[in-house]
Simulated assay, not measured.
Amino acid sequence: MEECRLQQGLCGFYYEPKRLIVLDETLLDFQKRCTLCHELVHAHNHDRGCTPYGSKAERRARLCTAFRLINPHEYAMAERMYGADSYLIACELNVTIQVIEDYKNWLHDSAVS
């Protein structure tokens, strides 16, 4: 793993040929933890290069990250305290809003199915 300043909007990436994860050095610790978890999923699955949001590999990485970083009991407690406010829930659970939104989407999709 390496850290360096990445272009704006890019938190990190996984480079399969060198099995290298690169994180933006300007991220806060909780952002680095979430990004590292996401990129480790890509590494575990030998995903190649950056893929669009809708790709199977990207959806898998985002969902696995949410599952690994969110404790269901802690999420339920945070949701009872803060309602649907993703920002406050993310602060309470020390994850990014994106991780919370991915978890919420999974909960919604699970309830619909």
Rank of each mutant, 00 (worst) to 15 (best):
K104G: 07
H46P: 01
P17W: 11
E101Y: 13
E101F: 09
E16L: 06
R33Y: 00
C50G: 11
R33F: 00
Q98L: 03
T51F: 13
L6K: 05
I97D: 11
T65E: 03
H108F: 14
P17Q: 07
E58L: 12
L6C: 03
E58C: 10
E2S: 04
V112G: 04
D85S: 11
H44I: 04
D47S: 08
A78F: 12
L93N: 02
V22D: 04
R80Y: 15
E79A: 15
E3V: 00
R62Y: 15
R80D: 08
E101Q: 14
D109W: 04
H38T: 00
L63C: 07
T51I: 06
V22W: 05
T65Q: 07
T51H: 11
V41K: 05
T65M: 02
M77V: 05
S113C: 07
S55F: 14
Y82R: 04
S113M: 12
C4R: 15
A66K: 00
A76N: 08
L36C: 02
N45G: 03
I97R: 14
R48E: 09
W106C: 06
A66C: 04
I21V: 12
E92C: 15
D24T: 01
Y14R: 14
E16A: 09
T35I: 08
C50H: 10
A43K: 09
Q8F: 15
N45S: 13
K56M: 14
D109E: 10
R5S: 08
P52R: 06
D109L: 04
R80L: 15
R19F: 05
Q98G: 03
H73M: 13
E101G: 07
C4A: 13
V95Y: 12
L69N: 03
S113Y: 13
Y87Q: 06
E2T: 01
D85L: 11
A66R: 02
H44L: 06
R62F: 09
A76P: 03
Q31T: 03
K104F: 10
R19N: 09
L36I: 05
E79L: 03
G9D: 01
R80F: 15
I70T: 05
N105R: 14
K32H: 01
K104P: 02
Y15H: 15
R60C: 10
C64V: 10
R60M: 10
H42E: 06
V112P: 05
G49D: 02
A43I: 01
Q8E: 10
Q7T: 07
C91V: 11
L88Q: 12
L23P: 04
E101T: 07
Y15R: 11
C91H: 11
Q8D: 12
V41S: 07
A84M: 09
D109M: 06
H73I: 13
Y53H: 08
E16I: 01
C91Y: 13
E58K: 09
P72V: 00
N71S: 12
S113A: 10
C37I: 02
A76H: 15
L20T: 05
D102W: 12
Y15L: 12
A111Q: 11
D24P: 00
Y53G: 05
C50T: 09
L93V: 00
D109S: 03
Y14V: 09
K56I: 10
D85K: 14
V95D: 11
A90V: 06
T51K: 09
Y53L: 09
K32P: 00
E79W: 08
